[in-house]
Amino acid sequence: MITEIDRLLESYFEGKTSVAEEKMIRHYFAHHNLDDDLKEYVSLFRFLENESEAKAVLNEIRHGSDASVPQRQPTGRYWAMAAIAASLLIALVLLSPDKQSTTQNGNYVWVDGKRMSDPLTVMKYAELSFGKVHPESDIIEDQLCFVLE
């Protein structure tokens, strides 16, 4: 006697079943006691019965990993941005214009707190200051002469 399930299976293997009929097959294999001749198809239809669950789990994992990607990417970006900010801050502190203007760049002379920037005046004061550190005599030569006298 050909049962309803045999007919459905025959249609299934001929590729003639509809989605609803395939669903009925899966439901049958999931919830009925099977005859020995049907048991050989168990793994196929039980797998398919669980396929929707598997897909749901896969979707969950996919969504989970999608959600975790944006969390990881910004972390890397934040580190890079923090590094850029820190470097700029260090550069600003070390090479601040205020510090340079008084210590490094430009041609200026301060006399009694008054600033002058005329190049000739600056040059004159620079020469004057250099003249002040120039030794009048060679101390070693002087001492040797004194000892040898």
Partner: peptide, 27 residues
């Protein structure tokens, strides 16, 4: 920059004859 002090800050091309890049003095 205080009273009684003379400070010179000198840099640039004017110093190239002396093979210097920077000159600073305080008296």
């Amino acid at each position: 920059k205080q009273k009684g002090a003379t400070m010179v800050i000198f840099s640039g091309e004017a110093l190239s004859n002396y093979r210097l890049n920077m000159y600073r003095s305080i008296t």
